[in-house]
Nucleic acid binder design. Structure first.
Length: 306
DNA sequence: CAGTGTCAAGGTGGA
DNA sequence: TCCACCTTGACACTG
């Protein structure tokens, strides 16, 4: 079991998602920004390694406008060695990486232009992980997409569009239950039809349930991951107390997290904490999980060289 | 220079 | 048909 947090670290003093306005795009500006983002990503991963945080989601803003037509720069070539070094660090320390493009990726859209833009965005995400030479345990998570007044047809369209994707995307894609449209049960059905692994989001499952208990949900989603896919990835969070439904908590609810670990044992999984204070909660969760037999220490803590 | 309006992209539901 | 909301930081313009 590896524990992590998404995209942002508030302790290291930099962001790996710096960007700029499309209107001020230039290849120079892009290069400058990507260089800075990669430098920061390296710092974040080193921070994580020191703290036994072995799971991290790289934000989609690492290479701004990468899938936009305006971007024709060969960033993979320009930064091949930087990406390679980061990937080496990740592998060396037994870390796991995920990415999560945002709501604009809609595979099952009815408008073919939206599908095309979605595919371009997915190709970019896969290219980042490829540039780091990570195996297929590094994944890109998406939601099923829109309902368009006909969930059956829309789920079928997800299946047919999925089947048309390039291998470079297919080997990385996983589907996640969302908080209002497609439940875990829907995702499991899509898995049966397509073979896509299912990423289980605990919070979304509580907001948008489908009659499956959490322990069973973890077990059944876990079974959708093949040997080469790595173990189940989960997103964990709790609602913001007193906040509007759907909002994520400010900090880790230790008691609830402990309860989650207890009720899901012994299924192994990697846990992404979608909580606002990011690495702070991850540190707390690592402290709690150390008592769990599934929890994994960083690889080099086992090595004799200290 | 601080404050703040706005930012590539979509879907949904209410007015 | 149009707009706010989802959720979020931070860019970049305004005064």
């Amino acid at each position: 079991m590896k524990i992590g947090y998404p995209c942002i670290n508030r302790s290291v003093g930099c962001s790996c998602g710096r960007t700029f306005r499309l209107s001020s795009y230039s290849d120079e500006r892009l290069e400058e920004t990507v260089r800075e983002n990669l430098r920061c990503l390296d710092l974040i991963l080193r921070f994580n390694q020191r703290e036994s945080i072995l799971f991290f989601r790289i934000g989609s803003g690492l290479v701004p406008f990468a899938s936009h037509p305006v971007c024709t720069a060969a960033w993979q070539d320009t930064f091949a060695s930087e990406f390679g070094e980061i990937g080496r660090f990740v592998r060396e320390h037994g870390m796991r990486i995920s990415m999560h493009p945002d709501q604009f990726v809609v595979i099952n859209a009815k408008d073919p232009d939206i599908v095309d833009r979605s595919v371009a965005e997915l190709r970019y995400h896969a290219a980042v992980l490829d540039a780091m030479h990570l195996d297929r345990t590094a994944r890109v998570q998406i939601h099923v997409g829109g309902v368009y007044g006909d969930r059956e047809a829309s789920m079928e369209r997800f299946g047919s569009e999925y089947a048309r994707l390039d291998e470079s995307i297919l080997r990385r894609l996983v589907v996640e239950n969302d908080d209002s449209r497609y439940t875990l049960a829907d995702c499991l059905r899509i898995h049966e039809e397509t073979g896509i692994p299912v990423l289980f989001d605990v919070f979304h499952h509580r907001v948008n349930p489908s009659g499956i208990a959490v322990a069973e949900a973890v077990e059944r989603s876990g079974a959708t991951w093949g040997p080469e896919d790595g173990i189940l990835m989960t997103d964990y969070s709790t609602p913001m107390p007193g906040g509007r439904k759907g909002r994520h908590a400010e900090s880790l609810d230790g008691a609830d997290f402990e309860q989650f670990l207890a009720e899901t044992a012994p299924t192994d999984m990697d846990i992404m904490l979608e909580i606002k204070d990011k690495e702070k909660s991850a540190l707390a969760a690592v402290g709690i999980a150390r008592r769990d037999a599934r929890f994994l220490l960083p690889a080099d803590r086992y090595s004799p060289k200290e």
